[in-house]
Design a protein around this nucleic acid. Structure first.
Lengths: 232, 232
DNA sequence: CGCCACATTGAAGGCAGTCAAAGGTGGTGG
DNA sequence: CCACCACCTTTGACTGCCTTCAATGTGGCG
């Protein structure tokens, strides 16, 4: 196991760094290997640093008192998480565990803060990254409180299908399900049963179809209507 | 109408600034007067700067396609909002309007970014502020998806009652309602009718009582149980 | 082949939203 | 000073989305 620099130098956090700055960042990194299912950190634990993924996938999630789980986000190669806790100087606001065996680059708070103070560009990159994530969270709040489950699912499907990398020129948009349906349900703040029912209804209405873990979107306009609140 | 410097110099964003740095910040400010109900900015409008409140109260909210509103947060004197959009360089993620006649200090993005580049301390303060707000948003997401309305209300009451400034040594915790009940309902992602019913139930169970816009908490433990998911 | 996790389907019940109407409250102007 | 008005709050009845519980179906893998 060793550091794969390319992955990190391509990340939006470090992409504009010159060799000198990058060397200083690199010096901070501790590589950490975690196994599938392993807890990386827990809510309310004192935050000591943040992570960037070299290989594998990690989920960041909240637990309710009775054990119900809501996945806030799933991170994969090149993405970083828990960076906010470095600056708030407090506790982790959520839990993180590995979905697959993973290798993580760990950046300790104190040394990283030191670096930021000496390199204002880093601060601006991080501000930009945090701002974008905040924008995302605001949208999550909107969807949870203002939209019903069909709308949230429709948006999820549409967003995934229009990601760069999926061919938009095709007659029908298509997406690969990035996680199990149970996980998607937790991500959308609902249950697998409800998700299954709504997917079933969409299939019956021929809005979508499914074929070995891939969803085909047949009626993009109908999907848009549902996102806008049109009842299914 | 003129700039009240003290309010801003006491804010956590600028509190550690010396006179020279503050003068540079001050030079950026445009004072803006808005009337009750006036829109300050709208979602998806190009973000051009951020605001800090000199007097008055402002709500930041999301609208669903059919006009339903969810208040993300209410800001008052000395607080700043929309700072994230400065760094993401994109659009406002939500709407803002004045709850009362207000005077706002407006900081244009480009000039402020310039300042940040030259003053690393500001960057750190902003990182810290954004991190805390993100922490808050993550909690909002948790509550919306994992907790029912009674739990969200109970947490709201408890948090308000334990704010520094409210006397914790009193036998019964107490809080002043910071906004109308309708606004609280929107803030909690529910309706005024539902809020009214739940408050009524809590009063009937003698968990709380209300007396001219103030809530008295009689059974703190019961409130905690409700936060933890105990049914009302 | 049989296990196990994931997925689907059915039935039942509850939480909360909507609609409607009545009661309360504060502010304004006559 | 009080009457009016606008807005907020409360209460009732009803509806429906979604969760929960339970049972059955399915697919991958040792």
């Amino acid at each position: 196991m060793e550091l794969n620099e390319q992955i990190f130098r391509k990340s939006h956090l470090f992409q504009d760094f010159n060799d000198k700055d990058w060397d200083r960042v690199k010096a901070l990194i501790h590589l950490v290997k975690v196994q599938k299912g392993e807890i990386i950190f827990s809510e309310d634990e004192k935050a000591h640093g943040f992570y960037m993924i070299q290989t594998g996938r990690v989920k960041v999630f909240k637990l309710s008192p009775d054990g119900k789980e809501h996945i806030l986000r799933i991170f994969s190669k090149g993405e970083h998480f828990a960076e906010a806790s470095v600056f708030s100087g407090g506790k982790f606001p959520a839990n993180a565990s590995a979905l697959t065996d993973s290798t993580l680059a760990y950046f300790p708070s104190t040394r990283f803060l030191h670096l930021v103070k000496e390199t204002p560009e880093i601060a601006l990159f991080m501000l930009s990254a945090l701002s974008r994530y905040m924008h995302h969270l605001v949208n999550v709040v909107e969807e949870l409180s203002l939209k019903n489950v069909p709308a949230r699912l429709a948006k999820f499907l549409f967003d995934r299908a229009t990601l760069p990398g999926n061919f938009a020129q095709e007659r029908h948009r298509e997406l690969k399900l990035p996680m199990t349906k149970s996980e998607i349900a937790l991500y959308l703040g609902t249950t697998s049963e409800t998700l299954s029912r709504i997917l079933g209804k969409m299939k019956r209405l021929k809005i979508i179809s499914e074929k070995n873990k891939r969803i085909l979107i047949h009626k993009e306009d109908a999907l848009q209507e549902i996102i806008r609140g049109q009842k299914l």
